[in-house]
């Protein structure tokens, strides 16, 4: 009996420490031959203090996964718990701990001003708007929107509207934030501000964040962990560093004296021309013996002199392309 109670207490404590728990989640659209398996038996957990990137090509099932987590799409199978509350059985308690930025949606009322939107969405998220006025002001300042606080959202540019939606979600106080394509329409400065704010939220308040984005630099610079989806299948759940280290896409960059177009043509089978000017040509090849030898042979036959050879580490973008295009 005592053992049972202890096991129960341990399991409750473990679920309390898990921000999001997704178990065997599946969703299929349509039937028969035209059926699409948007999410296929996906399980993972996210803990407070983690920023997890959601990666995958278009149609991989990322948005369906996000909507299934939130219950705006009802999954065929599986369960979702947010801070220990089941989204299916206790949605109101579960939703008290989550806020979301939907991709492409307006997320705001365009006929209300920026500040009116922030106050309204704070309220429906369960937060008294007066208690987060300072936070709203700070975020408006950070996103350079302070001067537009009393402007109707409809008068703002696409990027500014996205900033309003972001400020609204970031100020909500929810312990789990789900951001679907948050950098859409943002300029470089705003993207940098978003990175800073997300890092601050995680380090100061121990929140958990899911970030779905095609902007690999944002994922690489912010996320501790990535979930890679292909055709609704969770292909990889790993630390960003491990993913980069496991890649076979290390490259070699060669700089040589200029080459003619016939040589360029011959080289196209084994290397990629990066650039050529009057003084040099830069080529990139895969770091394998065969491709490197073939490239060097072609250059030797053309009488080109090699100036330098350097290996380059892969970035997340090249790893992503490698993993999603090979279907490996």
């Amino acid at each position: 009996m005592i053992e049972c109670v202890l096991i129960l207490m341990q399991s409750q404590s473990a679920s309390a420490q898990t921000a999001l728990s997704v178990t065997a989640l599946s969703k299929q659209f349509g039937r028969g031959e035209t059926a699409i398996q948007a999410v296929d038996d996906v399980s993972f957990e996210i803990h407070p203090g983690e920023i997890v990137g959601l990666l995958g090509p278009n149609g991989a099932g990322k948005t369906t996964l996000i909507k299934s987590i939130l219950g705006t799409v009802i999954p065929d199978e599986g369960g979702v718990n947010i801070y220990g509350h089941s989204v299916a059985d206790a949605p109101r308690q579960a939703y008290a701990d989550v806020d979301v930025l939907f991709e492409g949606a307006r997320n705001d009322y365009w006929r209300l001003t920026v500040r009116e939107n922030l106050r309204y969405f704070a309220t429906i998220s369960g937060v008294h708007p007066d208690s987060v006025t300072k936070e709203h002001d700070r975020l408006l300042e950070q996103f350079e929107l302070a001067a537009e606080a009393d402007t109707p959202v409809r008068s703002l540019s696409r990027g500014m509207k996205q900033k309003v939606s972001l400020a609204s979600v970031l100020a909500s106080g929810a312990r789990l934030l789900i951001l679907d394509e948050p950098t859409l329409g943002l300029d470089v400065a705003a993207t940098r501000t978003l990175r800073r704010e997300l890092q601050r939220l995680v380090s100061d308040t121990d929140r958990a964040i899911i970030l779905s984005s095609h902007d690999m630099s944002v994922i690489e610079s912010l996320c501790n962990r990535v979930l890679l989806f292909v055709d609704g299948d969770l292909r990889a759940d790993t630390q960003v560093e491990s993913l980069l280290n496991s890649s076979e896409t290390q490259h070699v960059e060669l700089t040589a004296s200029p080459i003619d177009s016939a040589t360029q043509q011959r080289l196209s089978s084994c290397s990629q021309l990066v650039e050529q000017d009057d003084t040099a040509v830069r080529l990139r090849t895969k770091a394998t013996t065969s491709t490197l030898c073939e490239t060097l042979n072609h250059l030797e036959m053309a009488g080109a002199s090699i100036k330098s050879i350097e290996t380059t580490d892969p970035d997340l973008e090249s790893v992503f392309v490698e993993l999603t295009s090979d279907d490996s």
């Binding site: 219950g71 307006r106 997320n107 369960g126």
Partner: peptide, 18 residues
């Protein structure tokens, strides 16, 4: 159309009282 219905549904109050 605006996507705000989904936002209302995923709140602790839900869309019913709104």
């Amino acid at each position: 159309q605006w996507g705000t219905l989904e936002r209302h549904i995923t709140t602790p109050f839900g869309f019913a009282p709104v």
